[in-house]
Design a binder for these strands. Structure first.
Lengths: 229, 229
DNA sequence: CTACCCCGGATTGGATCCGATATACAATAT
DNA sequence: ATATTGTATATCGGATCCAATCCGGGGTAG
């Protein structure tokens, strides 16, 4: 029987769908810091009742992407410079650990896949896709690590930082620089040099951290210190 | 007006209450791996409807403490040796980083607080409290780090491991050994030696990891490889 | 005797309804 | 005029109701 079965267990609940949609919207910056999430508005958008929406909101709150104020509603939460910087530190630590574990298990096929994503990242002119491709590139390499818990925490860290990393890619030469660094990381992986891959990854993340710090400092100097609490 | 107001905004929702109760029950091993969470049974226990129970279950699922199978219900998830070991590795890394950041900010008051918890841990004869005190000891020291994101991930890691750490404390000399190691860590903190505190903490965690590995290996050799999937 | 099918109870997921709370605005008193 | 109080509306949290799905047992055909 050459029937191509589809995994039914992947059928998601309505709440799961709403969650993914809201999560994507927040990560991509479509919903900005402080934006309120009105339950019945969202319910109407998805042609569902408020129950799945509430489910999605509690999931988002567990991930730290929104904060729910009892009887007042949920709002998207942003990061202060301090918070963002801490999460970047976390990523330096964990990304480094993960890629070091991953390099010895990378197959040529995986390298090729990462190279393809890298190429797509380089040639894409649509800044909207840069963030996704950037993330896909790193996560593809990390798949080889077989460290699901670490990847889970990393995914959450990325979820919170992505909005700012995307802004970072838009800066002058941000995209070109990221691409150059990706190629270096890829090379190190291809020749099996785990230490180099780890060091390059840390440098890559530190660059984004530093850039964001300067960027936010400039913004806050202009508008006064609108530090998120 | 000398009226001592209480902050009403701290009132938690019913879902939050149920979540905390279930979380505690899972962490303390009261609910074991594979135990099903029946919605209306729990709802009856808390004199509420199933809505807050469902909310609690989605929170638990986000934390990785239970897995919800669509239309079949939620069950408590356990850890395989591999999974537990990975999370111990994570803890070695993060605990070390966090305590190194915390030591320079520790006040005498904090050290005293930790010493008190340590003493309570040493003198308590009730194994049910050992786990809580053990955890409180470490988290108290870590408060000084001012790294909320790291502490969040660490809390989740502890939530998943605690059941096994508790079993570990029950082993011969497990409690005595943990206490001795706590005193060493405390000493290093008191004299401001961050590196020593970090190294001792890593050794402390590695001990639990190794002990658990042997323990589970013994169990699984007896019962066949009942590896959690 | 076995394999299959169908059906009913148990359980979950989603919709609708209702009470509780917060916010904005109008009314009133000092 | 301002501050305080009452009220109306928007919104949320929780209860109840209904539909969808799973599981096990009994019946039936081969």
């Amino acid at each position: 029987m050459a029937l191509k079965g589809v995994d039914v267990s992947k059928m998601v609940s309505a709440g799961g769908l709403v969650f993914e949609a809201l999560r994507r919207a927040i990560i991509e910056g479509e919903l900005k810091d402080g934006d309120p999430l009105r339950q019945d508005e969202i319910a109407r958008l998805f042609h569902t009742s408020r129950i799945p929406v509430r489910e999605a909101i509690t999931m988002l709150e567990q991930q730290g992407l929104v904060k729910n104020h009892r009887f007042k509603g949920a709002v998207v939460v942003g990061l202060s410079i301090t918070e963002a910087s801490e999460i970047f530190d976390f990523r330096c630590n964990i990304d480094s650990h993960v890629i070091r574990a991953a390099v010895p298990h990378m197959t040529p096929a995986l390298i090729a896949e990462a190279r393809a994503i890298c190429a797509a990242f380089a040639s894409s002119g649509d800044p909207m896709h840069w963030g996704n491709l950037n993330r896909a590139f790193h996560l593809t390499l990390y798949q080889a690590s077989n460290l699901p818990f670490h990847l889970g925490t990393l995914t959450n860290a990325m979820d919170r930082l992505d909005r700012y990393v995307r802004a970072q890619l838009l800066l002058t030469e941000g995209h070109a620089r990221a691409n150059a660094e990706h190629l270096e990381i890829l090379d190190a992986c291809a020749r099996g040099d785990a230490n180099a891959a780890a060091d390059l990854t840390v440098a890559h993340i530190r660059g984004a951290q530093q850039g964001l710090r300067e960027h936010l400092a400039k913004i806050q100097a202009k508008f006064g210190t609108a530090e998120a609490t």
